[in-house]
Design a protein around this nucleic acid. Sequence first.
RNA 1: GGCCCCGUAGCUCAGCUGGAUAGAGCAGCGGACUUCUAAUCCGCAGGUCGUAGGUUCGAGUCCUACCGGGGUCACCA
Length: 591
Amino acid sequence: MNIYADFAEKMLPLIKGSDLLSDLDADAQAALPLDRIVAEPPRDATHGDLATNAALLLAKGLRRKPRDIAEAIAKLLTEHADALQVQSVSIAGPGFINITLQPAVWQSIVQDVLTNGMDFGRTDLGQGEKINVEYVSANPTGPMHVGHCRGAVFGDALATLLSYVGYDVTREYYINDAGAQVDVLAQSAYLRYREALGEAIGAIPQGLYPGEYLKALGAQLADQYGSALLEMDEVEWLPLVKEAAISAMLELIRSDLDKLGVVHDVFFSERSLTADGDDRVAEMIADLSKRDLIYVGTLPPPKGKLPDDWEDREQTLFRSTRYGDDVDRALLKSDGSYTYFASDIAYHFDKYKRGFNRMVDVLGADHQGYLKRMTAAVTAISSENASLDIRFCQLVNLFRDGQPVKMSKRSGNLVTLADVVDEVGRDVTRFIMLYRKNDATLDFDFTKVLEQSKDNPVFYVQYAHARTHSTFAQAIEVFDEKIVSDLEKVDISILDDASEFALMRKLAEYPRIVEAAANFYEPHRIAFYLNDLASAFHGHWNKGKDLPQLRFIKDDNEKLTRARLALVLAVQIVLRSGLGLLGVDAREELR
RNA sequence: GGCCCCGUAGCUCAGCUGGAUAGAGCAGCGGACUUCUAAUCCGCAGGUCGUAGGUUCGAGUCCUACCGGGGUCACCA
């Protein structure tokens, strides 16, 4: 299915078996970078269908000029032209081998797409390996704001992508429901509860959550408990209110995620790590202690200017420096409770014990300081058997009509995720968030993302998809329903226009784009590819204006029309498949 | 001060992990609509890839140092 990989796979044995290597002893042969030999689409289409770097890579080991080696390989490819479906071979530049394939190769792509449907592009890269992708993990203290949005969409799309290429993916959300912040949440809710009972509470004190969203919870508590909570001491009401507050906030978050189309398989509670007398954080610390990775000691003061309240004191520390961290990290606070880092390690330990040797955490860019300690921790708790990859999502800057949208954190009036999705829609939000490398900041302009022009990639791609549908509708009008049936059986070999081949070549790239996107955890590659494919399709469409003989629908030639509709259908399928990986709806019409 | 990201056309960004003459979109200029929806397309113009070294057949991509922008920096959440 992947023409480029297939070609390299067929070419490699030919090179290995040729007399090019026969002068070398086994060691020298083993030293050749054969695994780096690839066949790729050339940057410039006039160079042919694919290009290989084989001669350049072998030059050093063979102690011969790249061009000489290229000559030899070109000869080899020509000799096996039929088996390789090669039409012509040429040598260019420093030693590139440019290859033009027989037209049938590209034509067969159309059939390939039609036969496999949404599975065209699916691979078994992951080979069923278990992988855990953790994303969002927003604290359950309020509705999700726009900052969470990017990580949510990124993580969700990444998980879909990894699943598509054969990993056994678990999508996970870690609920920070154990720390002081949920106590603050409960206190804030209690205030709203008193308010709901008619008390004048005045301004929300510094340090509590001021958001209006807690009013509903206050009212709910008033319904449920009447004035009973007023009679209690804080130690009594706090657990009750906390429980209600956390579950209310989670409900809020789930509804926000639902709006975005973001799903999780597992919601993992931090509190569960220490619940029911079973302290898994302590177990983790005990486990690391056995391997001499825990000690009590002091840390060197941070470089630069010291915090005002810095004091040198003994702490229980994890020896993260052994695995590449800059300093060792504290696991216990001065009051004896666990640090968040300690819980996080225990949580990742749990993931490991559940069979995940590959983990991905999607975090906001403000957590970048976390990278070394957390990867060190995973390496340690798994005895170097598991790996953690952390992907950071950079900030999203909001604009409206080119003007920055002001947000005030103090008043609690942040732009929420729900605000964004309600205004521009799920598809637009998701696509724009993914139409950028995750570690680059993103400008999100409410006005621009709704524009219906090619300036707006969401629209541009969806419009291409809608066009394929309108083409079908038109074809049925000109002929009848049968014109679009069983298109996978159509003879594609009558398609011979250069512009049609350009489209087929673009389709052929899809599997390797998917694979690269999955390999590098970069779903944005799919988004950019879709934009390219849409562009190729719009371009081809418009050729039909200047050259009517290229139009998809020829009312006097059913056979040709069907062949062209097969190509259109292939484009439609790949657009829908790619959009599906991003979690964006492929709309059939845009009006 | 340490660490982590970013720096590519006037603007917003890609660049397939080291390959050929660095690519798109927008903005600018010039063209194509009695249409298979012109919500689109075609062409022109636009660059010392932050700077300086290094690695090698070859660097936007890797290494080092600096410059500029952002983030982060004991027990925080």
